[in-house]
Amino acid sequence: MLEGNAKEAVGARPVSSAVAKMLRVEWLGQTTACICWIGSVFAYGVSSSGDWLQLCAATAWLVANIAAVTTDKAV
């Protein structure tokens, strides 16, 4: 049984900084995808309610990615 702080456990990884999280392939790929999605909505024009929904979805995805690197939650 492990006792004490989880950071003291054998094999525990230190909490990475926001920059380190942003340089991970997963974060870069998802962020690039949502920025391209937002760009495509503007490239094709916002002319219907479906376009606004697409824009809201892509923006929510971008906000979630930014929140993922700025929040410090234990894994």
Rank of each mutant, 00 (worst) to 15 (best):
M1C: 09
L2G: 13
L2S: 10
L2K: 12
G4V: 03
G4P: 10
N5P: 09
A6E: 15
K7L: 15
V10R: 00
G11D: 00
A12L: 04
A12Y: 07
R13Q: 11
S17E: 02
S17Y: 01
S17T: 14
A18I: 14
A18H: 02
V19H: 06
M22C: 00
M22Y: 08
L23R: 04
R24N: 00
R24S: 05
V25R: 00
E26V: 07
E26K: 07
W27P: 01
L28H: 08
L28Y: 07
L28C: 05
G29Q: 04
G29S: 11
T31P: 04
C34Y: 07
I35D: 04
G39E: 09
G39I: 05
V41E: 02
V41T: 04
F42E: 06
F42V: 09
F42T: 14
A43K: 12
Y44R: 14
Y44P: 02
V46D: 02
S49A: 13
S49C: 11
G50P: 09
G50E: 03
G50I: 07
D51F: 06
W52S: 10
W52T: 12
L53C: 12
Q54R: 12
L55Y: 03
C56S: 09
A57G: 14
A58I: 05
T59L: 09
I66E: 08
I66V: 15
A67S: 13
T70M: 02
T71V: 15
K73Y: 06
A74F: 09
A74E: 08
V75T: 11
